[in-house]
Design a protein around this nucleic acid. Structure first.
Lengths: 242, 242
DNA sequence: GATGATTTGTACGTATGTATT
DNA sequence: GAATACATACGTACAAATCAT
């Protein structure tokens, strides 16, 4: 069961997002909230402290808290699953496997994934039918059979692996930078060679720290951006379609 | 004067960084610390809460706190201050103001910053003498005088504004994507026109939610990447030089 | 502008729940 | 199971900043 202050934070967050407390308005005072929830002032302070760390409300000594900002992002799953993110944003997501083969792991791959053999997959993902993302993913050999068993147009690989073999991604490292489109990139994404792409390289592991995949994802410029909201307390991050 | 819990946090942080509490060791219990500093347990909890948010110590219910990291992960400051990040990584950072003028705010700027007039600043930043970043920043009018008073080659604007007028950045939103270099971008960064740049657009606010600046930062491809490590709980993020 | 009420920030102390050792 | 230690929650008091009169 969630702690009392978490419940209060959740209720207030919901009230903010549903417009009960519009952006720019004042939040009820700590005393009022304490009375409303039959809680001590300290408990209410813990709750609003969460919202402040999320950047949802601002705090100034002596003045009532002000509602600052709009929506909040559910950072983790979003960054690992293109399909889950896209669907939650109301986009029509598509995709297809363009190539798939087993091969020996290179030294760098072997070090990252801890296996001697890997499964290399090339996928093209679309939003509203437009190609936006080219994924070059290398899977560890122990998960390869499950991946090979997926349909070529599987929408959400993350979801399918969870449903199929109960695999849960729990941790990831991401590197985000910009690169020029190679000839192959350009042809598949429908852009000119040398045009800018947003690249996300990521390695994903299970809860126990076992590496699952290593991927080089390239987004067509102007299609997707990464959104990060950070305060001193917390760092939500998310994808964003342009 | 700093609050008592901030003093305690500072002392503990110093003891950790100087090796009094080595990495992997246990921190004294809350009760011990309360006795040592003649403070209430709640005050000690506020102090160690800061260290936990910084990633310096870990917390588990029932177990003593463990000292985690050597260095402080200041993921927040890092993403807002190029100079603070670069220096913490041992880079030689330089920079210069190329242009600066006051002008009327456009509708989008006015909505973002909440002022009718803005101060527009164009800065070129270097690492080891090489130009890597072009900053186009728009400041709210109330902070403009302080910014205009800075030297043209000021290394850390964030630091200077803190020292000068006590301004603390507390919250930010960032959009990261890739764009083609414009003619001006290309000339100033020393790359070909149309070559890929990593763009970071950010808006920064004070603790009270008052907008301070809106910036369009463009990094030369291959010079800097954004690094994100995310688990289900926390999302530290940082810049990374390539 | 000054005063007093309001509101948040800091600090104390106590009690109980829950996970670890 | 017992002892320890962190997590949650309550209540009180005063300081500091803000706001309304």
């Amino acid at each position: 069961m969630a702690a009392r202050y978490e419940q209060i934070a959740a209720e207030l967050r919901d009230e903010i997002l549903t417009g009960v407390h519009p952006v720019g308005s004042q939040l009820p005072s700590e005393a009022e909230l304490a009375a409303r929830y039959s809680a001590a002032r300290g408990t209410v302070r813990q709750a609003v402290g969460i919202l402040a760390a999320e950047g949802l409300v601002g705090s100034r000594q002596g003045a009532r808290r002000i509602v600052l900002g709009g929506e909040r992002s559910q950072s983790f799953a979003e960054l690992h699953s293109f399909a889950q993110w896209a669907r939650s944003q109301g986009h029509v997501v598509g995709g297809e496997v363009l190539g798939q083969r087993r091969r020996k792991a290179g030294p760098a791959e072997s070090a990252k994934l801890g296996t001697a053999e890997v499964l290399e997959v090339l996928r093209l993902r679309t939003l509203e039918g437009e190609p936006v993302l080219l994924e070059r993913t290398v899977y560890a050999s122990w998960i390869a059979p499950a991946v090979e068993g997926l349909p070529r147009d599987c929408e959400s690989v993350t979801q399918a692996l969870y449903d199929g073999v109960g695999l849960v991604f729990a941790y990831g490292e991401h590197l985000i930078d910009a690169v020029s489109a190679s000839s192959e990139d350009a042809r598949l994404l429908g852009v000119r060679r040398g045009s800018p792409l947003l690249r996300q390289r990521r390695i994903t592991t299970t809860q126990e720290g076992r590496p699952v995949e290593w991927s080089d994802d390239r987004y067509r410029a102007g299609s997707v951006a990464f959104s990060i909201r950070n305060s001193i307390g917390a760092n939500p991050l998310a994808r964003l379609a342009l």
